[in-house]
Design a binder for these strands. Structure first.
Length: 598
RNA sequence: GCCCACAUAGCUCAGUCGGUAGAGCACAUUCUUGGUAAGAAUGGGGUCAUCGGUUCGAAUCCGAUUGUGGGCUCCA
């Protein structure tokens, strides 16, 4: 598993290793300087918190008016003055009472002061500005060499949506101006790779106001990709012993009540519709339906493990502000499966799923991801989580064992589990830097009981199956969103919406070009014949922009010799060759889902 | 859902102090038949997101709604 990296902690680790532990101090100090600047420009400002973060810092303020983009340069200028004045950062220690007196006009600081367990509190002073802070800081404001304020955003105090919304200013800070420029250039590059931009340029998907937010429409190019991905899933899951099922998009209220979705998941569900006195819900997950398939006849331990798979379409009512391109939508098609097994089969099944993930990630050349074990929090029992503390602890331990025995690295986060059990989420980052769960592998000890699922064991007694929910390819929406960014739109041949562009040089080459296109089409290749009376340059440019892996340019020479000239998407030119040899190569590359072009 | 910003042709964007809309690309037609990232001309295309208000007059000012974006919260 080379290339595996837990980038959650990555930046910190790298910094420490590289002997650059100072940069965090610089960023944190920059936050203090920004706070001082804001205080001097907006007297009466109430301060929240201002930590260092990846690439920079932020500080939360309660201000008399809303900030605008025009305020940032003013704040920056003030900061530059403070930096240039070369004021030292001075640490002072004091008692809780002294701190309370010092921050008497700062309600947010008072709240923090009261929650600090130690009796000795520390504050840092630079010039006229003093802030409650653990430190450490740089010695002098002059040590802050390069910073820039980036944007303004709203943020709830202490991340709690029931508490006041403060105004947050984000900044970046590095040791040198050059690093800032490089960082901004990286952001620009990220914008070019943004799946929303590429998805539009490559005609993959669109959103329509009349259809609704978060409800993507797949254009022909996107639909072609979806079909390839489903083909991949069907073949792979068949090899791994899954059987396929199909289920409706709706079910009666009672099903979701028994499964636990209505008590624990209702706020993410579309409201019910009522017909002939019966309430129906659109499904937010496929599991209840699959559980009914499991329960559709008596099951023996000999039937287990039973692996039911379906690319099921689900609908979740995500809050409007949470929608994000294809990465966060309201209708989604999931690479779903539920594995019903005995407890003694659990470890093997669970590990099998993890290895299935790794198989897929290798295929897609996905190297930057992290496996996150999400566990429950005792405080959420009966609210967010099914109330069965023993089973939570037991299944969490089972998952840890399954991971450890297979030497699979992971990190653990409490209070992130599904309502029915712990899970392993595979975390990836969008090119914008936002983190998403791409795939998931969840244990479910609750629904079998809630839904009354049993099997007859070796002793002829009824027993509850354990259930594993898994979606290694996540949803089409998020996977394709991710792959767009991951490949920058230049997909491997098998996945590329347009695989071959046939480009005749002049009209007299059209017949030959057409016969090539027809033959490729009969091989199932997605081919486009560009028959327009445009220049060769123009047609090649078009094919390049569409990121066609292959361009077949045919003119007098090719017609005369019955050959083709192949230009790769990389700009590379293959030697002139008989059409049949290209056709053969293409067949192999697609059949093996190779990432290479030749 | 919350804070802030934005919404002009299919796409990317101009549009000054309010005086009934422009460019490039794309598309269509014609000319051109050109050998590896844009040949030329002509043409069609916009209720300036929607609704309301201010004004003699609104793309422009104000309000609401819808949608999008940056965050927060939440998540596949």
């Amino acid at each position: 598993m080379g290339g595996f990296c837990l980038w959650r902690r990555w930046s910190r680790v790298v910094i420490k290793k590289g002997g650059e532990q100072d940069i965090e101090k610089v960023r944190h100090s920059a936050a203090h300087v920004m706070a001082e600047a804001v205080q001097s420009l907006f007297p009466g400002t109430k301060f929240g918190i201002g930590p260092a973060i990846e690439d920079g810092f932020y500080y939360d303020f309660e201000l008399p008016r809303a900030l605008t983009a025009e305020d940032l340069p003013l704040i920056e200028t003030r900061m530059a003055e403070i930096v240039a004045s070369g004021v030292p950062f001075v640490r002072e220690e004091m008692s809780r009472g002294e701190a309370r007196a010092l921050f008497a006009a700062q309600p947010y600081k008072l709240e923090l002061i009261d929650e600090i367990p130690e009796d000795k509190l520390s504050v840092y002073r630079q010039g006229a500005f003093v802030d409650l802070c653990r430190g450490p800081h740089v010695a002098n404001t002059r040590d802050i060499k390069a910073f820039k304020l980036i944007n303004i955003a709203g943020a709830y105090w202490r991340g709690d949506e029931h508490r006041p919304m403060l105004q947050r200013i984000y900044g970046v800070a590095f040791h040198t101006e050059k690093e800032i420029e490089e960082h901004l250039a990286r952001l620009e590059e990220a914008k070019r790779r943004d799946h929303r931009k590429l998805g539009k340029e490559l005609d993959i998907f669109t959103f329509d106001d009349d259809v609704g937010p978060g409800l993507p429409l797949w254009l022909p190019n996107g639909a072609a990709m979806i079909e390839e991905i489903e083909k991949l899933a069907v073949e792979t899951e068949f090899r791994h012993g899954y059987v396929r099922v199909r289920t409706p998009h709706l079910a009666k209220e009672d099903l979701f009540r028994r499964s636990g979705h209505l008590p624990y998941y209702e706020e993410s569900m579309y409201p019910p519709m009522e017909l002939e006195g019966v309430r129906y819900y659109v499904k937010p997950m496929n599991c209840p339906m699959h559980h009914r398939i499991f329960g559709s006849r008596p099951r023996s331990y000999r039937d287990l493990p039973l692996r039911l798979a379906e690319y099921g379409t689900c609908y979740r009512y995500e809050k409007s502000g949470e929608l994000f391109g294809l990465m966060r939508v309201r209708s989604m098609q999931m690479n779903d499966s539920h594995i019903y097994c005995m407890e003694k089969q659990f470890e093997e099944e669970f590990a099998g799923v993890i290895f299935l993930y790794l198989e897929y990630f290798k295929l897609f050349d996905i190297k930057e991801f992290a496996m996150r074990l999400s566990t429950h929090a005792p405080g959420g029992l009966g609210k967010k989580y099914v109330n069965n503390p023993e089973l939570w602890l037991k299944t969490e331990e089972m998952v840890r064992k399954a991971l450890d025995h297979n030497h699979i690295p992971y990190y653990e986060v409490a209070d992130e589990a599904a309502f029915y059990g712990p899970k392993i989420d595979v975390q990836i980052k969008s090119v914008i830097g936002r983190e998403f769960t791409l795939a998931t592998n969840q244990v479910d000890f609750a629904q079998a009981e809630r839904c009354g699922l049993t099997f007859v064991n070796e002793e002829g007694k009824e027993e509850r199956p354990l259930i594993i929910h898994r979606a290694p390819l996540g949803t089409h929406e998020r996977l394709i969103g991710f792959l767009l960014e991951h490949y920058g739109g230049a997909f491997p041949v098998w996945l590329a919406p347009l695989q071959v562009a046939v480009i005749p040089i002049a009209d007299r080459h059209l017949d030959y070009a057409r016969s090539l296109a027809t033959q490729l089409k009969s091989d199932g290749i997605r081919v486009k014949l560009d028959a327009r009376s445009e220049s060769v340059n123009y047609k090649i440019r078009q094919a390049q922009l569409e990121k066609a892996p292959y361009m077949l340019v045919v003119g007098d020479r090719e017609v005369a010799a019955s050959t083709i000239s192949v230009r790769l998407r990389t700009g590379e030119q293959l030697p002139s060759q008989p059409f049949e040899s290209f056709r053969e190569m293409l067949r192999t590359i697609i059949a093996t889902r190779s990432g290479d072009l030749r």
